[in-house]
Measured scan of single mutants.
Amino acid sequence: TTITITINGEELRIRGDHEEIHKILKAWEEDHNDEEIVRLIRELAER
């Protein structure tokens, strides 16, 4: 699965399995701050 998210003008492409993507979207849905979401995404992007 690949998704693209733009946060603060920075486009981040994430490839991951369903569970990893779900974790990010769940954090977003629960209204975590952008920095935390960006950190989760970067961790995935670095793999």
Rank of each mutant, 00 (worst) to 15 (best):
T1K: 15
T1E: 14
T1Q: 12
T2R: 05
T2A: 10
T2H: 15
T2W: 15
T2E: 15
T2S: 09
I3M: 05
I3C: 07
I3V: 11
I3S: 02
I3F: 02
I3T: 05
I3L: 05
T4I: 14
T4E: 04
T4D: 03
T4P: 01
T4C: 08
T4F: 05
I5F: 02
I5N: 00
I5H: 00
I5R: 00
I5V: 10
T6S: 08
T6A: 06
T6M: 14
T6Y: 08
I7Q: 01
I7V: 12
I7T: 01
I7A: 02
I7S: 01
N8V: 03
N8I: 02
N8L: 08
N8C: 07
N8S: 05
G9S: 03
G9F: 04
G9T: 03
E10I: 10
E10C: 14
E11S: 12
E11G: 04
E11F: 07
L12F: 14
L12H: 12
L12Q: 04
L12N: 02
L12I: 13
R13W: 13
R13K: 15
R13G: 04
I14G: 01
I14F: 05
I14H: 01
I14N: 00
I14M: 04
I14R: 00
I14Q: 00
R15Y: 14
R15P: 08
R15E: 14
R15W: 15
G16V: 07
G16S: 07
G16W: 05
G16Y: 05
G16C: 08
G16P: 02
G16D: 04
G16N: 04
D17E: 11
D17Q: 10
D17C: 05
D17I: 06
D17P: 13
D17R: 08
H18G: 06
H18V: 10
H18Q: 07
H18I: 12
E19H: 11
E19G: 07
E19I: 11
E19V: 11
E19P: 10
E19D: 14
E20A: 10
E20Q: 10
E20D: 13
I21K: 00
I21S: 01
I21Q: 00
I21H: 01
H22D: 14
H22G: 08
H22M: 10
H22K: 13
H22F: 06
K23V: 06
K23E: 09
K23G: 08
K23N: 11
K23S: 06
I24Q: 03
I24M: 07
I24E: 00
L25T: 03
L25R: 14
L25F: 04
L25W: 02
L25V: 09
K26E: 08
K26L: 14
K26S: 10
K26N: 12
K26R: 12
K26C: 05
K26G: 05
A27R: 14
A27T: 08
A27K: 14
A27I: 10
W28I: 07
W28P: 00
W28A: 02
W28H: 03
E29C: 07
E29Y: 11
E29A: 06
E30S: 11
E30C: 03
D31Q: 09
D31F: 09
D31L: 11
D31Y: 09
D31G: 14
H32W: 11
N33C: 10
N33M: 15
N33D: 12
N33A: 09
N33P: 06
N33R: 05
N33I: 14
N33V: 15
D34G: 12
D34P: 11
D34C: 14
D34T: 10
E35I: 11
E35H: 06
E35K: 09
E35T: 09
E36K: 10
E36Q: 10
E36V: 11
E36T: 09
I37F: 12
I37R: 02
I37P: 00
V38T: 08
V38Y: 04
V38L: 14
V38N: 06
V38P: 05
V38S: 05
V38M: 13
R39G: 06
R39L: 04
R39C: 04
L40Q: 14
L40F: 02
I41R: 00
I41G: 01
I41A: 04
I41C: 02
I41F: 01
R42Y: 05
R42T: 09
R42A: 07
R42H: 06
E43M: 11
E43H: 07
E43Q: 13
L44R: 01
L44M: 11
L44Q: 02
L44I: 10
L44W: 05
L44S: 02
L44K: 01
L44Y: 04
L44V: 04
A45C: 07
A45K: 05
A45H: 09
A45W: 03
A45Y: 04
A45G: 05
E46I: 06
E46N: 06
E46M: 05
E46Y: 03
E46V: 10
E46S: 11
E46T: 09
E46L: 05
R47V: 09
R47K: 14
R47I: 14
R47C: 06
R47L: 10
R47N: 11
R47D: 05
R47P: 06
